[in-house]
């Protein structure tokens, strides 16, 4: 089997960041809590491959620690979306046409109608800025994405013969959903999960840029950019590096999502808005 090129490129890009984040648990080139003011705003050099920031901290180390924050927030937000959205979607499909189905789908429409960033800002502003609230705020908007996709995918299987066979053999709708439907729509979930993961990275960056995401001393790419804003004209690298990190991470995940879609099933189509 030939692997799609976008999958290979995307996976390599994503693995670089995942690897960097994993490595940061045991080793970073410098300790990011140690300030070294005399070495502030240095351009990239051998000692500091990505330069230093306004407090003399090593930017490569900050990027590694920031990757950890971004990945953790986005991954948990996808977890919330899948954890609640998939069961809701399966339930709606198993009881299609019922009041429950209607209620679940209308609820989804309602969440979709909200401008997600505004509500995320409201949530984090009210409950306090922080990584946990950012996860919840981003996660809530993942629920309807997965619920809709699951319901749509599941409905196309409920009319198939092997499901009919399972029903005839006396399996309950819940068991059929878990044993027969879920494995068949797992591909869809993986592809959409990758896309929501990349959207989560962008959302986390935006929230922490406006000061509502992870708080100091936790490193985050969005806050690195906020700190860099006034320094961009003196030391462009402090603004360029974290931004490029976001771009490459998101690009990698998107390419991986496209590649996975081609690999797993050329017929499925995933919506992306």
């Amino acid at each position: 089997m030939r692997w799609p090129r976008s999958l290979v490129v995307g996976a390599i890009l994503s693995l670089v960041f995942l690897g960097g984040a994993a490595l940061s648990f045991v080793w970073t080139p410098y300790d990011i809590e140690l300030l070294d003011i005399p070495a502030k705003l240095q351009s990239p050099s051998l000692a500091h491959p990505l330069g230093t920031d306004q407090l003399g901290r090593d930017i490569l180390s900050m990027i590694m620690m920031g990757a950890r924050t971004s990945i953790a927030v986005a991954l948990l937000a996808v977890g919330i979306g899948m954890g609640l959205g998939v069961p809701l979607g399966l339930l709606a499909a198993a009881r299609r046409g019922s009041l429950l189905d209607e209620a679940i789908m209308r609820g989804n429409d309602l969440i979709f109608a909200f401008p997600s960033l505004v509500i995320a800002i409201l949530i984090t502003a009210v409950f306090g800025a922080g990584a946990m609230n950012a996860i919840i705020a981003i996660g809530i908007f993942n629920i309807p994405v997965f619920a809709r996709l699951t319901r749509g995918g599941a409905l196309s299987f409920w009319s198939r013969e092997f499901i009919l066979a399972a029903r005839v053999s006396g399996k309950s709708p819940a068991r059929i959903s878990v044993e027969h439907i879920l494995p068949n729509i797992a591909n869809l979930m993986i592809v959409q999960g990758t896309i929501q993961f990349s959207l989560g990275i962008l959302a986390e960056a935006a929230l922490s840029y406006i000061g509502l995401g992870a708080q100091p001393p936790t490193a985050s790419w969005g806050r690195m950019l906020a700190d860099a804003q006034t320094l961009a004209s003196i030391a462009p690298h402090v603004a360029l590096v974290p931004g490029l990190a976001i771009v490459f991470m998101v690009l990698g995940l998107n390419l991986m999502g496209d590649g996975l879609r081609d690999l797993l099933d050329p017929r499925i189509r995933v919506t992306r808005t």
Partner: peptide, 11 residues
């Protein structure tokens, strides 16, 4: 689609 708009704004 991969570029965060606020970073693009800074650039």
């Amino acid at each position: 689609v991969a570029i965060p708009n606020f970073w693009f704004a800074m650039i």
